[in-house]
Amino acid sequence: MCAVVGAVVIGAGLLTPPSASAAPGAPQAPSVASLAASAPAGLIPDRPMPEEVARALTRVARASDGRVRLGTVGSSNEQRPLPLASVGTGGVRLLYLTQQHGDEPLGTPAAVRALWALGVPDSAWHRWLRSRVTLDIVVQVNPDGAVRNQRYNHDPSAGGEYSEPGVGYDINRFHNPLTPIEDIPVPEARAILRRWHATHPAIVVDYHMQGRYLQPDGRETTASILWPTTTLAGEAAVTRSRQVAVRNFDVLTSVAGANVTRYPGGDYEGIARNGYGILGSASLLVELSDLPPEQADFQIRTAFTSMIATVHGAANGSLWRTDPARADTIPERGPSLPDVTTLRRADAA
């Protein structure tokens, strides 16, 4: 029987690992636990519908006195808005994406909590951070898929590679920077590419969910990460991406209590982590394992920790003082376990 992680509370570890020196003059970073606790209970459901995302973002923006700014990057195929939330005014830009696959929801509530934690409190550290970075989050990239609990967007005319004919397209195969944006058949991917070209973020992080996997040591993987693997991405972008991966591995294992492995992803250039690496961003994929429902909050807190640690590391520069070669020591993901639906049915039997 595999060892499954329990519903733990994030500890009081600081956002900067002990080995990474803080920026001169930077205020002391709060603990992840205190930042997580700043967001009120019930801010957003674990698996939110688009209207629940909109209500939660509105609540965050109002509570922030304008420090969290709301907009859209475009519309879905069914004309639902693709929400954009931004915090900070600094010169280092970051872009986070959540729920490109509609049935992979937990990055979305993590993003809403992170926006609250970064934008609502107004301590010296918060003001310092917001003066150094601008974070954009496209919160729930695939609202049409979310309402149907499906991987694909909704497009009955969909056909060809990376689609489910009559259902829709896999958005995360259409970020190909080698294809003219106007020729991409997926409006959600076009909108994100246009946002990238408008802002040129230094870092792009894409939050997904995966199945369940067992490691050789008997523990279950709770998250997997990967940087660009396409040969078309430049060496500098891949190096920076690997540094972001190492930072995430360190913080997620030591602070969030996650069991992090290397995701076995492909090299197709239309996958977001590859496409934005080709464009020159440090690019990272974060995959949360689809654990049983009682562990959803643990997984949301894992994504929250990744979001906060990455933006803080960009603000104080500690991201770029990590050893990118350490990315090769992140353990490979183990073999798959029965899918969550099967396990839940077995538990109920």
Results as ranks from 00 to 15, higher is better:
residue 191 A to S: 11
residue 170 D to L: 12
residue 118 L to M: 13
residue 348 A to N: 05
residue 307 M to P: 02
residue 237 A to P: 09
residue 295 Q to H: 07
residue 185 P to T: 15
residue 269 E to S: 05
residue 76 S to I: 14
residue 104 E to S: 05
residue 166 G to D: 15
residue 202 A to L: 10
residue 68 V to K: 04
residue 137 I to H: 10
residue 263 Y to S: 11
residue 164 E to F: 05
residue 232 L to D: 11
residue 79 Q to M: 01
residue 63 A to C: 04
residue 254 S to N: 15
residue 209 M to F: 00
residue 111 A to C: 10
residue 234 G to K: 14
residue 251 V to G: 06
residue 234 G to V: 04
residue 231 T to F: 03
residue 24 P to E: 00
residue 213 Y to A: 10
residue 56 A to W: 00
residue 227 W to V: 11
residue 238 V to G: 13
residue 282 A to W: 08
residue 210 Q to G: 08
residue 200 H to Y: 14
residue 188 E to D: 08
residue 17 P to E: 06
residue 327 A to G: 08
residue 130 R to Y: 13
residue 13 G to P: 02
residue 7 A to R: 15
residue 272 A to T: 08
residue 96 Y to V: 01
residue 229 T to W: 01
residue 307 M to D: 01
residue 18 P to K: 06
residue 93 R to A: 06
residue 252 L to Q: 15
residue 3 A to G: 12
residue 225 I to H: 11
residue 163 S to A: 13
residue 163 S to C: 11
residue 29 A to F: 03
residue 123 S to E: 15
residue 319 L to E: 03
residue 117 A to G: 07
residue 152 Y to H: 15
residue 140 Q to N: 14
residue 181 I to Q: 00
residue 116 W to M: 05
residue 184 I to L: 01
residue 10 I to G: 00
residue 289 S to Y: 03
residue 219 R to N: 14
residue 19 S to I: 09
residue 62 R to L: 08
residue 19 S to P: 04
residue 142 N to A: 06
residue 222 T to C: 13
residue 130 R to I: 08
residue 126 H to W: 12
residue 134 T to C: 13
residue 117 A to D: 13
residue 53 V to A: 02
residue 11 G to V: 12
residue 59 R to G: 01
residue 85 A to W: 02
residue 259 N to V: 11
residue 247 R to T: 08
residue 137 I to R: 07
residue 286 V to H: 13
residue 143 P to F: 14
residue 256 A to Y: 03
residue 268 Y to M: 04
residue 89 T to C: 10
residue 136 D to Q: 12
residue 58 T to W: 01
residue 70 L to T: 03
residue 24 P to D: 01
residue 180 P to W: 08
residue 217 D to W: 08
residue 104 E to W: 04
residue 33 A to Y: 07
residue 97 L to W: 02
residue 235 E to H: 13
residue 290 D to N: 07
residue 29 A to K: 02
residue 297 D to L: 05
residue 295 Q to V: 00
residue 194 R to P: 06
residue 179 T to R: 15
residue 8 V to S: 11
residue 231 T to S: 10
residue 116 W to H: 09
residue 243 Q to M: 15
